[in-house]
Structures are given as C-alpha cells and as structure tokens.
C-alpha cells in the first residue's frame, strides 16, 4: 500500500522534505506549546477557572483585546491612507517614508515603549500640551492603545500596498467613463478590491498587538484592573514563581491567538479565491 499523501511528482525528495518540515515544526512550535498545556494540566479544573476568570485577569483581557482591536481598526484607516499616498503619488522623500513604515517592525519594542512614554508623559513633547486639556496618555489605557497602534501599522500598510499597486488603472477609468465621480469610483470599484487585503492587514495588526509586551509595559503604568495587559500579568505571576498560574493565562492567550491565526488564514483564502483573476 502506498501512502495516500504521496503523489507522483517530478520534484524529488517529497518524503524527505515533508519529514523535515514536520520535525522542524514540532521542534519549534508544537513541543514548546504542548509544554504549556502539560504544565497547566497540573491545576485542577476549578483552580484553572479561578485563575483565568479572576477579576484582575478579566480586566487585563479586556484591555489587551479591546486596545488591540481599536488599534488595529485605527491602523486599518490610517494605514490604508499611507499605503494610498505611497502608491498613488510621487513626491520627494517617498522612498524614505516607505522605509520608515517598517520601523515599528525593526525597532526593539522596549525602545519604542520608552520613546512613546517620553513623548506622552505629562512633561513630554506632546504630553505637556495634552495635560492642560485633561487628556492623560502615559500610564493609562490610552497609552496602551497608542503603543499597540504604533506596532501594528506596518501590517496594514504592507498588505494593502501591493494590492493598490496591482489595481488596474483602466478599471477606474472605466468607472469614470460611465459617469461615476471620484467618491463613487472609490466606494464601488477600489474598496471592494482592497477589502480582503485590508481585512487581512487589520487581523494581523490585531494579532501582533495581542502578543505585544515590550512597548506597552513602559507606557501603560501597569495598574492592576486599570492599565495592566495580560502578557504583563503572566510576567508578574512568573516573578512570583506561580508557574501554573502563568501557564493557565498563557493557555487562554494561546487559544485566542490560535483562533485569530485561523481567522487570518481563512481571510487570506477567501480573498484569493473569491474571484478568480481575469
């Protein structure tokens, strides 16, 4: 009996590469993650439930996922505008701006956190003007939101940009020739083309923000029940040698992240198959 997975192919090495891929994937992803579950399973179901539904934990989920979602949506809007400007207009310094978009990717997150804190602190460059208006950014959930928006930006720009680039100019001209004004053309012709990529970008920015730690802890102030994110709560538990408690929260994060990753993949699949290319 032949293995059903194996199909005749001109490319050699199917067995070898598949074997290696599975081994590597297990080593890097599956084994560490299963460790999480093994460790958590030392807790009884009641203990586990107590830890993950503790008010402090619940508040941290709310902040982590809430701020991540809002940050991702903000990126969805402004990231699209940046991508639009980068693709559609030619101006001096364009390639510089294009390169700067990747900075949140490349910058160590701690550096980003410290910088943001310095700027938004009550005596910082921007913070000092917001202070009289009664807006506090640093050490509040708003600061968390700003940090999460900062690190998520490249995801939206980099997913929307290539789609905008490939957009057929003739399609827009066709819409114009049929009497559509700029807004109608944008809404009826450009947005539907952009939509799948934009959704993917937002989902990726969201997923990235959920896992963010470094940049947030500096600006958040980390007050329990107020401005404490889940990754920090895990860190706190680790520092108190509460490994099982940390892994319990880790399991919750893992499950949510997994669902998100699945959703991103579905979105990508949807966007690539919805309309076959002309």
């Amino acid at each position: 009996m032949h293995l059903l997975l194996k199909q005749p192919s001109v490319l050699p090495g199917f067995g070898l590469t598949l074997g290696f891929a599975l081994f590597y994937f297990s080593l890097i992803v599956l084994i560490p993650l299963s460790g999480l579950f093994v460790r958590t399973s030392t807790l009884s179901w009641e203990q586990f439930w107590d830890i993950v539904t503790n008010p402090r934990a619940m508040a941290s989920y709310q902040l982590t996922f809430g701020a991540s979602l809002v940050g991702a949506l903000v990126n969805g809007i402004f990231g699209s505008i940046i991508a639009w400007v980068l693709v559609r207009y030619r101006f001096s310094g364009r390639s510089l701006v294009d390169a700067l978009v990747d900075l949140p990717f490349a910058l160590p997150t701690a550096v980003a956190g410290i910088t943001l804190t310095a700027i938004y602190a009550p005596n910082g460059w921007i913070g000092r003007y917001l202070e009289p208006l009664g807006i506090k950014v640093a050490f509040t959930p708003l600061g968390v939101l700003i940090a999460l928006t900062f690190i998520g930006l490249p995801f939206v720009v980099r997913t929307v940009q290539p789609v905008l680039q490939d957009l057929d100019k003739e399609v827009e001209e066709a819409a114009t020739m049929l009497g559509a004004n700029r807004w109608q053309t944008f809404r009826a012709v450009i947005v539907p083309e952009l939509w799948p990529a934009l959704l993917t970008g937002i989902a990726m920015a969201f997923a990235r923000a959920v896992g963010e730690y470094g940049s947030v802890i500096f600006i958040a102030g980390n007050m329990p029940l107020k401005s404490e994110i889940t990754p920090l709560l895990i860190m706190t538990k680790l520092e108190q040698y509460d490994y099982s408690g940390a892994t319990a929260l880790g399991v919750v994060m893992l499950l949510v992240s997994f669902v998100l990753a699945l959703a991103i993949n579905l979105l990508q699949w949807w966007s690539s198959t919805r309309h076959m290319q002309q």
């Binding site: 057929d168 066709a174 020739m177 049929l178 559509a180």
Partner: peptide
C-alpha cells in the same frame, strides 16, 4: 456622454455581469 471600451475589458470583477452593465445607471 462618451462610451469607452477598453482592450482588456476593464470589467469590475467583484460585480456580476448584470451589475457591471447597470453600473453607469446606478451612479447617475
């Protein structure tokens, strides 16, 4: 009031044939 037909059709690929044809009327 000029109609234009492109070499590479330039159809709106996320719209059905009927919606494509109706486009010019819908944006009036």
């Amino acid at each position: 009031r000029v109609g234009f037909v492109f070499q590479h059709y330039a159809l709106f690929r996320h719209m059905t044939v009927a919606d494509n044809v109706a486009f010019g009327l819908n944006v009036l």
